[in-house]
Computed example of a mutant assay.
Amino acid sequence: MKILLLEDDTALAHILVDYLEDEYEVVQTYSVKKALTLTEEQKFDLYIFDINVADGDGISLLRELREFHDETPAIFITAFHDTKYLKSAFGAGANDFIKKPFDLDELGVRIENLKRHFGLASLVELGEGLVLDTKTHSLTQEDKTVHLTQKESECLHYFYKNRHRIISSDELLQNFWEFDEMPSDDAIRTIVKNLRKHIGKEHIVNIRGEGYKFE
């Protein structure tokens, strides 16, 4: 799992990176501007943002990301104890909130909770005994295992993580292909067709004129 950490307190940033890197890949920055650039260049599974940093604030950053349909789970860490910041963070699309000072194990528990909720563990239970291994790109149901292509595995995982909303073909293309390598919509239709063979048509529903939804 890959985490983007936005924290401009140097000492705390080092402590958090040391703690998180025992289990996860961590990219850390002190800057809102740099964090935004990183989200455009790389894919992350979790955001951990401080609210107040030198060149802006994490809440505005997350709000901007959500406007571009970035549904990556986000935890805010802050020294503020005023509930208005709590309301603002959740209003911007935050999934959890932790106040400084905090125990590192508490952060670990909160991360584990989001992993379960958003299917971020390497083994993802899609339902009805269907398990996706995001590392080996294998799909298992009871005693039957099929191996997906990397793109099929990534798209299926993305459908599952965003199962509460409709995903357009354009969104999938922008998330899984570089601009100069972007294929036609036919590539998405082929991936969806192949996935339906393995998990059933009823699980990836075509919403006419809008895209697809995982059920």
Rank of each mutant, 00 (worst) to 15 (best):
G119Y: 03
L120V: 07
S122V: 09
L123M: 13
L123C: 06
L123F: 12
V124M: 04
E125T: 08
L126F: 09
L126Q: 10
G127L: 09
E128C: 02
E128F: 08
L130H: 01
V131M: 12
L132G: 01
T134K: 11
T134W: 00
K135E: 14
K135I: 10
T136W: 00
S138C: 11
S138Y: 00
K144M: 13
K144R: 14
K144F: 12
T145H: 08
T145R: 15
V146G: 03
H147V: 14
T149V: 12
K151R: 15
E152A: 06
S153A: 15
S153Y: 02
E154T: 01
L156Y: 02
H157T: 05
Y158K: 06
Y158W: 10
F159D: 01
Y160M: 10
K161I: 13
R165L: 09
R165D: 10
I166R: 12
I166W: 05
S169C: 12
S169K: 15
E171H: 13
Q174F: 05
N175A: 11
F176W: 06
F176I: 04
W177R: 07
E178D: 12
E178A: 09
D180M: 10
M182H: 05
P183K: 00
D185C: 00
D186H: 11
D186M: 04
D186Y: 10
A187M: 06
A187Y: 02
I188K: 09
I188G: 08
R189C: 02
T190H: 03
T190N: 02
T190K: 14
I191H: 03
I191E: 01
I191F: 02
V192M: 06
V192A: 11
V192L: 09
N194Y: 02
N194F: 00
K197N: 12
K197W: 02
K197V: 03
K197I: 03
H198S: 10
H198P: 01
I199K: 07
I199L: 11
K201R: 11
E202A: 13
E202T: 14
H203N: 15
H203E: 09
V205P: 02
N206R: 12
I207A: 09
I207F: 08
I207M: 13
I207R: 12
R208V: 07
G209F: 08
G211D: 05
G211E: 07
Y212Q: 08
Y212M: 14
F214M: 04
